[in-house]
Structures are given as C-alpha cells and as structure tokens.
C-alpha cells in the first residue's frame, strides 16, 4: 500500500448525502475477480448516460474537475454493502481523499462515513477526512465558486488547506492507529503475524464451539 503523507490535488464536489456503495460501484461490476479495473466504473449510473456517453451534468465529468483527487460529499458516505470494490473504484479513479461531515455533537455525534467503507479505505490508502457540517458547507461554497481549486492534505499535521482566494485551513481529527497505518503504508497481515505466538497461545485455550460434522 502507498503511504499517505502530504497530498495536493483538485477538489471535486458531489453534493449528496447517503451516497451508498451501489451508487459508488453498481453490482454488475462486482463479478470481476481481479483487483483492478474498477476506476472507470466509479459512480457508473451517474457518470454515464444510457448510450454510454459521459453525463456532462455530473461533476466528475466537468472539465474543471478533470484529474481531481479529492472528493467532497455530504454525510454517511459509503453506506450499504461491505463491497471493497467501492473503495477500489474510488482509489483506481485516482481519488486519495474523501471528505464528509459528521453530524451532531458529543456522544450523539454521527460519523461522516459508514463503518465498513471507512475501514476498507484505510486498507487501500484512501484517507476519509471528517469535518463539521459547517466546515464542509464552506468547502462546497468555495469549490462551487472557484471550480478546479486545489487543496493540500497534510496528514502528519492533520490539516486540509484549500488554496482558494482566500486560502482556508481546516484542522481535522483522525484515529491515532489509522494515522500511523496510513503514514507508513503498512501490510496488516504481516503486522498481525508478528503476534503469531499470541494467536497460537490463544487457540490452545479457546473453545470455538464447533461440532465435528
């Protein structure tokens, strides 16, 4: 996996809440047994017209956002199925960062991304960046006013800088374990296998409750 440290790219808006994994990658593309080739099908039903031509209305197809690597959307991004194909599509399209807002406050705070999707992103070196609804609203405003604007995500410093006029800096929070994982681009199976002795010891005393069939 590619480590993630500092990344600069164009920000593309997709102004919808609850963007589900069926929208990110429709089911007909889940039949592929390889791990590549999903990027061209990202948001397939929104991105292409019935005749297969690009839908000019969809932001990803607008010239200003060509080559965008940072996507901003509304809350509950990636809800639905566990299909990692959705994250492969996001990553293989070239996106390295997805931004979505959390909702509510304190103990009632609802994360901006669905759990399984966020987890799958970590495994593929894609940063899910959460900000408040007000901050994400600001980003939408700026990106809509200045299409094609670039942003820099600095993971060590946990900042997102929008290089618009004026420049805006947002501080974001991230789980310490996830941050370390992304910074180092780790292979988690190899990491886990460092605990081989602990796993073997656990297996000796643990009852898996399986009847021999």
């Amino acid at each position: 996996m590619n480590p993630f440290t500092i990344h600069t790219g164009i920000v593309v808006p997709v102004d919808r809440a609850n963007i589900d994994t069926d929208a990110i990658i429709p089911k007909q593309f889940l039949k592929l047994i390889g791990r590549t080739g999903f990027g061209e099908f990202l948001f397939n039903d929104w991105r292409y017209l019935e005749n297969g031509q690009p839908n000019g209305e969809f932001t990803l197809n607008k010239p200003a956002f060509k080559g965008a690597t940072i996507l901003v959307a509304r809350n509950n991004f990636g809800c639905g199925s566990s299909r990692e194909h959705a994250v492969w599509a996001v990553a293989q399209y070239g996106l390295r960062v997805v931004i979505a807002p959390w909702r509510g406050e304190g103990g009632e705070r609802i994360p901006g991304f669905a759990d399984i999707f966020r987890n799958n992103c970590v495994k593929n070196g894609v940063l899910t960046l959460e900000l408040s609804e007000a901050e994400v609203e600001k980003i939408f405003g700026l990106v809509n006013d200045q299409p094609g604007v670039q942003a820099t995500v600095d993971l060590p410093k946990q900042t997102l800088t929008l290089h618009g006029k004026p420049e805006q800096v947002f501080q974001f929070e991230i789980d310490a374990g996830v941050k370390n994982y992304l910074l180092r681009g780790l292979d988690d199976i190899a990491l886990t296998l460092e605990h081989e002795a602990a796993i073997a010891a656990f297996e000796k005393q643990h009852n898996v409750q399986l009847a021999t069939a």
Partner: peptide
C-alpha cells in the same frame, strides 16, 4: 459483522481481525 475483502484475506490468513 461484515468486512471488506482485505479483511477477508486477513481472517483467512490469521483467523483474527484488528478491531477497535
């Protein structure tokens, strides 16, 4: 609970999952 394919591979190889 559901997991992604990277975690499917992780469980196949280690019978464990890294969880918070």
């Amino acid at each position: 609970h559901g997991i992604g394919t990277s975690e499917v591979e992780h469980v196949l190889a280690t019978q464990t999952l890294r969880q918070k």
